[in-house]
Design a binder for these strands. Structure first.
Lengths: 164, 164
DNA sequence: CACAAGTGCTTGGACATCAAAGTATTTCCT
DNA sequence: AGGAAATACTTTGATGTCCAAGCACTTGTG
């Protein structure tokens, strides 16, 4: 299904016609949402043959960047900014795929470490190649636009307390 | 839990250190994802007191923009670019809240029309006010940045066949 | 040293989305 | 006219996310 008009512009016209406020903000927010859906869809499609989705890939990438190839569950959630329950779920999937294992923390009985297995390290490399091949879904953004979007959204994230 | 560094920049450094490709694309895509999470979270928080989320609000807005206050389920999915099954689910929720009703199409026995009820029209107006009050979650983007992001992402959507 | 408070993780429940299969109705084609 | 194909929607099942509650372990305080 391919619309022959931009539904966001159409919504903006209706918004104005009904005297609803903040049309520009609505259009920017909606464009952001829609662009995200496209990018996420392309990324997940590229990763599906590897038995990964983006969340699981992010965990593998994070682990492969560490010295020991392991991190506490909580640290993973902090860095990827997802809920602890989601980390539990994601690690369970990665464990079922044989990409990571869960081990007890040597000093703290509360903590569980997720440890990268060789198969996980290998698949993470494959996934990085697959994602680079599609430019992370943003090849539709030329380099200057890509830099603009990145800079503007980094400012936005900072303004909203995403990091300090 | 507030990181004192930008996890995306940190990921970029690791990416480069491991000789993984397309770092700029990775950073742009990740920033887009994270910004979307922030915006969506703020929007849903603003709508929660009204017994709405963004998907349900979009349906009410779309219906309130039509002449008759009603649309076939399929048209709703096309315009909002969501799966037909999601439309069914969303309309069921709106129906349970007393915001819309489902009626048979007069000429086509296959088609179901979603029709806006007075309560739904009222709540849509309230929701529009609530969303305008938070600038759709993008008040962290100053007007020029907002325009840039909107323009760049519209170009991106167009390049990816979101509309023609 | 004991116990309250805090921390780390998992579980269960509520939602939302999508894909695929199923049902009903209409349209197309011979 | 009659059956195949297309269309419109719903249902079911698999995923994934969050929140709130629960459990286990550790830390801080008197």
């Amino acid at each position: 299904m391919m619309l022959d008009f931009d539904p966001i512009e159409e919504a903006g016209r209706n918004w104005d016609a009904h005297r609803w406020a903040a049309t520009d903000a609505m259009k920017a927010a909606t464009a952001l949402t829609r662009a995200h859906q496209i990018v996420q869809g392309r990324i997940d499609a590229a990763l599906a043959p590897l038995d990964l989705n983006f969340s699981r890939f992010e965990v593998l990438a994070l682990l492969s960047f560490t010295q020991a190839g392991e991190l506490p569950m909580g640290k993973i959630g902090d860095r990827l900014q997802v809920h602890a329950a989601s980390v539990t779920n994601t690690i369970q999937r990665l464990e079922a795929s044989g990409f990571v294992e869960r081990v007890a923390h040597p000093d703290d009985g509360r903590t569980v470490l997720a440890r990268l297995l060789p198969a996980g390290r290998a698949i993470a490399g494959d996934a990085a190649v697959a994602l680079a091949a599609i430019d992370f879904g943003v090849d539709g953004l030329a380099a200057p636009a890509r830099r603009r979007v990145h800079a503007d959204l980094t400012g936005f994230r900072n303004a909203n307390g995403d990091f300090s």
